[in-house]
Design a protein around this nucleic acid. Structure first.
Lengths: 344, 344
DNA sequence: CTGTTAGCGCGTTCAA
DNA sequence: TTGAACGCGCTAACAG
């Protein structure tokens, strides 16, 4: 009875092989695979399932896609100018969130990093291979804009992370950067800080602008002084140099607000090396608390980003748009949560 | 002349549409797209290219795959028991390396995290959609083994990260964990440390075993004493608890070797909280130096993993196997580099 | 150099 | 409930 299936030339089994072996037609196998239980008898179904398992048959995704005009796949595009485009824990959490939600829904995820200097050779853009795209853009405005325009031209469901929606049919998922910044600034000012220093990356991007705006509002409202310090590439070295120069020129502030945790930790380390007490002489706060902030001493006052949740939500919106034709909203803002500590 | 192409029902243009518009046959367009320059005249080629650009035509990847029986895609499978399967910087660097190499070669990358408790619903495994797979497995041996067996059954080109090759036709790309551990241990012992404590994760995995073996060798060779301390989930809390207990039971060692940087930094923080000088009273070293180790004070003595390079190399081997039928070697070991610091 | 034909594996459609 | 025909978009293999 088990005469062995006739192998397709590719070496992979096809529906037909399974059908032959199970003594049914290919359509029956297809119906079983796609859970159309009403179309096939229980006994037949079990027999087919057993045959599939026994032969180790796996459906050919491309054939299904071609036929159904649906990819059951989404693209994740990360614009970053360093090759290690997954260096940022924020990005990786978002990607994990997207990937897990997609997997739960039986969608595949195509991941691709893009550098702004090489927008050619991007399989995700130059071919039709996904039902939608989720883009995580970093870097200066003009570069983000270039890629964004290209994405919009694809006329494909599109979700942006940490951007503002450009267009009614583009969904943006972001966190409440402004609110988080307001909370931290109030915390500092209410504890007596009146001269604040905010460490910003050399390249401003939307989330940082939001944070700065929030701090500005609090400062003007509560009569505190705010100084922006730009820290180049946000590295330990760049940040420490910028902080040193700023302090030499303007003296010690009451508080240093890191635009993110890395910059805050660099500042703490710099102050420590100068024998300046944190928080005694200068309070320090971070932003975007991830695991590694826990290794700071003193422990960092910061706000936690729900980056994984953002990815999850972004994927959910994208699949909704693909399957129902619309997003639940075009601008989705997730809350952040204040993390107490003893650095401020 | 520009009468507008007839749109395919899917809303996407097809080769045929472009051909019609350019006044050639679909085959000619296909030849242009695939760079078969000998098959088509220069003038025709330019006209076709212009038409493609003007119409914004993008080839349908699934159709090409189905026809050519090749995916031009590879899968990246990450086995991890937490949903945030991209939390580890080692993993993300590897993934970035794989992704970038693949993109350079016009391959797409399918990324999927898998938890050992849910090996069902893994599109990467249950469908035919890539030409090969690169697996990054973490967690206890038995779980890795289960997934590995499943991968092998797919009879698909397979590369493993940080494992030993199981099989002649499986390529393993790993780093010289043993050598790095030997170097660090020699450094410590030659500076007078004779009682060493090694912090290991609760779950042993191959790379950690290699490191322990290396340290053991040095200790027996140079007459030093080694104590293994298991730190549960490697978190800050777990590690500090384990270190505290070990010190209470056995007294201060001369040196604490972290199985990775996180555990080392947790130990430094613990010692600092007890007023114990590093490296004065206890030397501390790490392993797998990534960016965030730079934020340690005192700066961490560690070894740097070339994780990005490992990913690059893994992808290179995988594509070689796909395109030429064989790997350049089945066990590939990349060197690690010693990073000096003042924690030891 | 261009045109024609055929078929990759699957799923829809209709007829039985 | 099942069977047969057809075509999704593309490309290999030829014929002109």
């Amino acid at each position: 009875m088990n005469s062995g299936p006739k192998l397709a030339r590719s070496g992979n089994l096809t529906l037909k092989d399974v059908a032959l072996e199970a003594g049914v037609t290919p359509m029956t196998v297809s119906n079983v695979l796609n859970g159309r239980d009403t179309e096939v008898g229980a006994e037949t179904r079990e027999r087919v399932k057993a045959t599939i398992d026994r032969l180790g048959y796996r459906p050919h995704a491309s054939a299904r896609r071609l036929r159904s005009q649906r990819s059951f796949a989404i693209g994740v595009l990360v614009l970053d100018d360093v090759p290690q485009f997954l260096n940022d824990p924020f990005t990786t959490q978002v990607v994990a969130g997207i990937s897990n939600f997609a997997t739960e829904c039986n969608y595949s995820v195509l991941l691709q990093g893009v550098r702004s200097d090489s927008l050619v050779r991007v399989p995700l853009l130059s071919q039709v291979q996904t039902d939608g795209v989720c883009a995580i853009l970093s870097g200066p405005q003009s570069q983000r804009e270039t890629l964004l325009q290209r994405l919009i031209k694809l006329h494909m469901p599109l979700v942006l992370i940490q951007e503002r929606s450009a267009n009614d049919d583009v969904c943006a998922v972001r966190q409440d950067d402004r609110g988080g910044a307001v909370e931290i600034a109030r915390y500092l000012v209410s504890r007596g800080a009146s001269r604040l220093m905010f460490l910003a990356p050399g390249q401003e991007w939307p989330a940082i602008t939001e944070r700065i705006d929030g701090v500005r509002e609090v400062c003007s409202e509560m009569g505190a002084d705010l100084r922006l310090v730009f820290c180049g590439a946000e590295t330990l070295e760049d940040t420490q140099r910028a902080v040193r120069v700023a302090i030499e020129e303007n003296g010690l502030p009451d508080a240093i607000m890191g635009g993110n945790d890395r910059m805050a930790m660099a500042a703490i380390q710099f102050l420590d090396s100068k024998g300046i007490q944190v928080p005694g002489e200068v309070r320090v706060t971070g932003f975007n608390g991830f695991d590694f902030a826990a290794y700071s001493r003193p422990s960092l006052v910061t706000v936690r980003s729900e980056a994984y949740e953002m990815g999850h939500r972004a994927a959910k919106e994208l699949l909704a748009r693909i399957e129902t034709g619309q997003f639940s909203a075009s601008d989705i803002v997730l809350p952040v949560s204040f993390i107490p500590g003893n650095s401020a």
